[in-house]
Nucleic acid binder design. Structure first.
Length: 813
DNA sequence: CAGATGTACCTTTTT
DNA sequence: GGTACATCTG
């Protein structure tokens, strides 16, 4: 706390009224509408900002921060501003800086819940029996650790799959339940053993001096609850608190906030109950719904003017969401024109849906039906479940339409990156057992299960880390030739790397610097600089460990990509002072944004789309069972259905100009063809704002043609009844589909066979495919080739995506 | 110890 | 259908 001057902080706490007018004329205030302005100017006391989709929420939030600073009400380090994602934090930082000009010093306490908790926890680690250099485990580590515990406890892995156990524990942590606080009812519902395992897991984490993501919050809450002096100190420091996406907070986060805001109550929460879509991961809509009860006298401000979408799109979204109960209620309005109606189209199956959207995207590029031309990067396809993306990827690959997938496996989650990181972790701290386990036999060193078990036994018997245990094992000559030699080599490497990794003062990356808290690892300060830079060291580690070679020798098609990723990893080290700082960053950040010049359609889940906007949005797969998802409804009933409906609302409101909803009568799920009925949410779209494109012959001319739309009251009632499956709209659709002969697929159309591409091959040819690697042609069928791939097995592939094996060097990708 | 076959599983996902 | 993981076999 050394350099923080509390008296100065208090001086800044003089009430606003007594301070001079704004330091500078606050031109930014003129940019706001009345509601936004109110939200910005109500600086003191609790404020709840209910910000509908596209109503300038971030603008209000960032302007509020700027206003706090500009009026001298608070200093940058007195504002605690929390977000959920790093992206949101980054954006907020940028926008505040832009509002105030370049002169603002960084805001040290603007960040994600987790990043802020890391800073706090490093400071007070000893209060929860940790050392301040604790490591942060990601989900993968967590699961491997749990697996060990499950096995050690002699519990059937089938009964408690580590993955499931991790979920259960996460849920408990989200609710801020320590092992001894898990309610008996809850524990009984699962299994007593799960609680015992949870307790054991926590104990093990402590021994390893490690925390998982949930702990970051939970430990800090525990510290605040048990040490009033510490809490008091932070209440004085964080004089103004701002929270983004408040509807997504879980119980632990809620407690954390309430504790911190408890004194001065200067807390401003921004959120939208209609966009709460993370209930399944512990978010409590209840937090936002009862804000006024938690903070009596709170100012509630509604941002309702929408600047994003056309009137038709807004009306469609409002129509859907109005079927939900227990909303705080907002009415979005816009000055914008009606624009295009929301388009609705039905398809025979998922493939046709993908084909239609592909064609539509191409047509939109030219401008169709009097609409302006839309570039691909103005368009997005938002799906409910990620497996829906395959149909689109297949199709776009075939027609060569550029696309990008958001939210796939991230860079830092890839196998090769995690392996490399494990080596780095060992260099930083050789007693990182989890890292050691990961790489003992990667690359293959002839150290299989048996050898690894011996190491475990040696370590446990001597109460030391695995690296030490391995040394003991070797000294005792308890391991045979080949493996022993490789192990000795690895251990020598770790020692060498560790010596080289002990660098100078350990700090966070510059942009994450904390003004008054030293985040560095204890004990490393003041050491002389190493001879090699951490970048060279990283290269050496990968080289000497044989890891690079391992992938060089690998002949699978993805090996080159992995080597490329490793290079990228080393390059990423450049922006850090040392390996420790880098590891810390990666544990919390894990994002991977590649910007590419070429315009591409964006393909992502509805969840990933929250907070984004696109001129044109496609919402495929609106079928009951898929969306709303059957599972959501089965597991949480009406609550789940309502969350699905909010997801629909989020989807529609992503669109600025054009929103296209589609559904398919048949879809292949888990390899089985299944037919489905249009989503009940389709019935909830107000007919006046929808244009039905469904081709005649399918669904009898389309939705709305047969019967008048159900009255609103009926919709409402239906949503809350248990027999939602028997809705009038449903029966209507069902009847229609039976009458109109849904069993006939539409005529196949536009089957363009690229004969040139096919004629280049004959049976038996060796070929190369970008994704599947090498193989031999076994059959030719239309424009498709059947190929027996060496690694990937037999596949049917469109001829133009395959080249003769000889010319594999210049593949057309 | 490694590759090869067989068998259960299958939302949404950030930190 | 396709993947991740466990068990079987060379």
């Amino acid at each position: 706390m050394s350099s923080f001057d509390e008296s100065e902080a208090f001086e800044a706490a003089v009430p606003l009224s007594q301070r001079a007018m704004a330091v500078r004329p606050a031109a930014y205030l003129d940019d706001l509408n009345p509601a936004q302005r109110e939200a910005v100017e109500a600086l003191e006391g609790p404020v709840l900002m209910l910000a509908g989709a596209g109503t300038g929420k971030t603008k209000a939030l960032t302007t509020r921060i700027a206003h706090l600073l500009n009026t001298g009400t608070a200093r940058p380090n007195e504002i605690l501003a929390v977000t959920f994602t790093n992206k949101a934090a980054r954006e907020m930082k940028e926008r505040v800086a832009r509002l105030l000009g370049q002169t603002v010093e960084g805001m040290p306490w603007l960040g994600t819940f987790h990043a802020i908790c890391v800073k706090l926890l490093r400071r007070h680690a000893e209060l929860v029996d940790l050392k301040s250099n604790f490591t942060i485990l990601d989900t993968d580590d967590q699961i491997r650790l749990l697996k060990q515990l499950v096995i050690a406890a002699g519990i059937d892995e089938k009964r408690w799959p580590p993955r499931l156990l991790a979920n259960v524990i996460d849920n408990w942590k989200n609710r801020a339940w320590l092992p001894d606080a898990v309610p008996a009812a809850e524990a009984g519902a699962f299994d007593r053993k799960a609680v015992a395992l949870y307790a054991e897991y926590q104990q093990r984490l402590r021994t390893l001096n490690a925390v998982d993501f949930g702990d970051l919050l939970l430990h800090v809450v525990t510290i605040f609850q048990r040490h009033e002096d510490v809490l008091e100190q932070y209440r004085r420091w964080f004089r103004y608190i701002l929270v983004d996406e408040y509807q997504d907070t879980n119980v632990a986060q809620y407690l954390w906030l309430r504790l911190l805001a408890g004194g001065h109550r200067n807390i401003c929460c921004v959120g939208d109950d209609d966009q709460s879509i993370y209930g399944w991961r512990g978010a409590e809509v209840g937090n936002i719904l009862r804000f006024e009860k938690d903070f009596p006298g709170a100012t509630v401000i509604r941002l309702e003017q929408n600047y994003r979408s056309t009137a038709h799109i807004l009306a469609a979204a409002s129509g859907v969401i109005s079927a939900n109960t227990g909303r705080l209620g907002k009415t979005l309005w816009t000055e914008a024109d009606g624009g295009e109606k929301v388009r609705l189209i039905g398809h025979w199956d998922g493939e046709e849906e993908a084909r239609w959207i592909g064609e539509e995207l191409e047509a939109m590029g030219q401008g169709t039906r009097g609409m302006r031309a839309m570039a691909l990067d103005e368009c997005a396809i938002l799906v409910r479940a990620s497996h829906q993306m395959r149909a689109f990827e297949d199709r776009f690959l075939t027609i060569g339409l550029p696309y990008k997938v958001i939210g796939g496996p991230r860079f830092y989650e890839r196998m090769e990156i995690r392996d490399a990181m494990a080596y780095f972790r060992l260099a930083v701290s050789p007693d990182d057992d989890l890292a050691f386990e990961r790489i003992v036999n990667t690359p293959k060193r002839g150290l299989g299960d048996k050898a690894q078990q011996k190491i475990q036994v040696a370590a446990r018997a001597n109460g030391v880390s695995l690296v030490e245990g391995a040394k003991i094992l070797l000294a005792a000559k308890d391991l045979s030739g080949k493996g022993a030699k490789a192990l000795a080599e690895l251990l020598a490497g770790i020692d060498r790397w560790h010596a080289a990794a002990l660098g100078p003062v350990v700090r966070m990356p510059a942009d994450d610097d904390v003004l008054d808290l030293e985040v560095g690892m204890a004990g490393a300060a003041g050491r002389a600089g190493p001879q090699v830079s951490h970048i060279e060291l990283a290269e050496q580690i990968l080289e000497e460990s044989g890891y690079t070679e391992h992938w060089q020798k690998d002949k699978t098609p993805e090996a080159p990509g992995r080597l490329e990723n490793l290079k990228e990893l080393v390059k990423a080290l450049e922006s850090f002072d040392n390996l420790q700082g880098f590891l810390e960053h990666v544990a919390l950040i894990m994002d991977n944004e590649t910007d590419d010049a070429e315009a591409k359609v964006t393909l992502m889940t509805l969840h990933a789309a929250k907070g984004l906007e696109f001129p044109a949005v496609f919402l495929p797969g609106w079928e009951d069972g898929l969306f709303p998802s059957q599972r959501a409804m089965d597991e949480t009933g009406l609550k789940g259905l309502e969350e699905e409906r909010r997801l629909a609302y989020v989807g529609i409101t992503r669109a600025e100009e054009l929103c296209t909803i589609s559904f398919a009568a048949n879809r292949r799920i888990y390899g089985q063809w299944q037919s489905a009925l249009p989503s009940r949410f389709i019935d909830e779209l107000p007919e006046a704002h929808v244009e039905v494109l469904t081709p005649p012959g399918l669904y009898g001319g389309g939705y709305g043609a047969a019967a008048a739309p159900a009255p609103r009251s009926d919709l409402h009632e239906r949503a809350s009844r248990a027999d939602v499956y028997n809705s009038p709209g449903w029966k209507r659709m069902q009847a229609r589909s039976e009458v109109r002969g849904m069993s006939q697929p539409r005529e196949t159309r536009n089957v363009v066979i690229d004969l040139d591409a096919v004629s280049a091959f004959t049976e038996g040819d060796r070929v190369f495919h970008q994704k599947f690697g090498y193989g031999a042609v076994t059959a030719i069928e239309g424009d498709k080739l059947e190929i027996a791939f060496d690694k990937a097995g037999a596949k049917r592939v469109v001829a133009k995506f395959v080249v003769p094996a000889a010319s594999a060097g210049d593949v057309p990708f």
